[in-house]
Protein backbone atom coordinates (compact mmCIF):
# COMPACT_ATOMS: atom_id res chain seq x y z
CA UNK A 1 0.00 0.00 0.00
CA UNK A 2 1.23 3.47 -0.90
CA UNK A 3 2.33 5.80 1.88
CA UNK A 4 2.07 8.99 -0.04
CA UNK A 5 -0.70 9.52 -2.58
CA UNK A 6 -1.06 12.48 -4.94
CA UNK A 7 -4.25 13.51 -6.71
CA UNK A 8 -2.34 13.93 -9.95
CA UNK A 9 -5.12 15.65 -11.84
CA UNK A 10 -5.26 18.50 -9.31
CA UNK A 11 -1.51 19.08 -9.01
CA UNK A 12 -0.24 22.44 -10.28
CA UNK A 13 3.41 21.44 -10.26
CA UNK A 14 4.50 24.26 -7.94
CA UNK A 15 7.23 22.13 -6.40
CA UNK A 16 6.78 23.14 -2.76
CA UNK A 17 6.38 19.47 -1.80
CA UNK A 18 9.53 18.29 -3.57
CA UNK A 19 11.59 21.06 -1.97
CA UNK A 20 10.76 19.98 1.58
CA UNK A 21 10.90 16.21 1.10
CA UNK A 22 13.76 15.03 3.37
CA UNK A 23 14.21 11.88 1.26
CA UNK A 24 14.10 13.76 -2.08
CA UNK A 25 11.82 11.14 -3.61
CA UNK A 26 9.23 13.49 -5.11
CA UNK A 27 9.67 14.16 -8.82
CA UNK A 28 7.58 15.58 -11.64
CA UNK A 29 6.04 13.07 -13.98
CA UNK A 30 6.64 13.39 -17.72
CA UNK A 31 2.89 13.19 -18.30
CA UNK A 32 0.76 16.31 -18.42
CA UNK A 33 -2.40 16.48 -16.31
CA UNK A 34 -5.72 18.04 -17.42
CA UNK A 35 -4.62 21.40 -16.01
CA UNK A 36 -1.48 21.34 -18.12
CA UNK A 37 1.05 20.61 -15.40
CA UNK A 38 3.59 17.87 -14.83
CA UNK A 39 2.17 16.38 -11.64
CA UNK A 40 4.30 15.65 -8.58
CA UNK A 41 4.66 11.96 -7.87
CA UNK A 42 6.59 9.37 -5.86
CA UNK A 43 7.74 6.02 -7.17
CA UNK A 44 9.99 4.96 -4.30
CA UNK A 45 7.18 4.50 -1.79
CA UNK A 46 9.38 2.33 0.43
CA UNK A 47 11.72 5.28 1.02
CA UNK A 48 8.86 7.52 2.27
CA UNK A 49 9.07 8.11 6.03
CA UNK A 50 5.49 9.48 6.27
CA UNK A 51 6.75 12.74 7.74
CA UNK A 52 3.95 14.67 6.04
CA UNK A 53 6.19 17.61 5.13
CA UNK A 54 5.05 17.49 1.50
CA UNK A 55 1.38 17.63 2.51
CA UNK A 56 2.06 20.40 5.03
CA UNK A 57 3.43 22.61 2.27
CA UNK A 58 1.07 21.57 -0.56
CA UNK A 59 -1.16 24.61 -1.23
CA UNK A 60 -3.68 22.51 -3.13
CA UNK A 61 -4.19 19.77 -0.55
CA UNK A 62 -3.78 16.99 -3.08
CA UNK A 63 -1.52 14.81 -0.90
CA UNK A 64 -2.63 12.08 1.49
CA UNK A 65 0.02 10.54 3.75
CA UNK A 66 -0.19 7.23 5.55
CA UNK A 67 2.04 5.55 8.05
CA UNK A 68 2.75 1.94 8.86
CA UNK A 69 1.67 1.10 12.38
Amino acid sequence: MKKVIFKHDECKGCGLCAAVCPKKIIFFDKSINPNGFHPATVDEQDKCISCGFCATMCPDLIITVRKEV
Partner: peptide, 22 residues
Protein backbone atom coordinates in the same frame (compact mmCIF):
# COMPACT_ATOMS: atom_id res chain seq x y z
CA UNK B 1 -1.58 1.78 7.64
CA UNK B 2 -2.81 4.84 9.45
CA UNK B 3 -3.66 8.04 7.63
CA UNK B 4 -1.48 10.79 9.05
CA UNK B 5 -2.47 13.51 6.63
CA UNK B 6 -5.57 14.07 4.49
CA UNK B 7 -7.71 16.96 3.36
CA UNK B 8 -9.83 18.27 6.22
CA UNK B 9 -13.61 18.03 6.27
CA UNK B 10 -13.56 21.73 7.02
CA UNK B 11 -13.00 22.30 3.31
CA UNK B 12 -15.29 21.33 0.44
CA UNK B 13 -14.17 19.06 -2.41
CA UNK B 14 -13.87 22.03 -4.75
CA UNK B 15 -10.42 22.42 -6.32
CA UNK B 16 -8.71 25.71 -5.45
CA UNK B 17 -8.51 28.20 -8.31
CA UNK B 18 -5.30 29.72 -6.95
CA UNK B 19 -2.14 29.99 -9.07
CA UNK B 20 0.58 27.34 -8.71
CA UNK B 21 2.52 27.85 -5.48
CA UNK B 22 0.15 30.49 -4.08
Amino acid sequence: MKTVFEKTKGLTDKTFHYCPGC
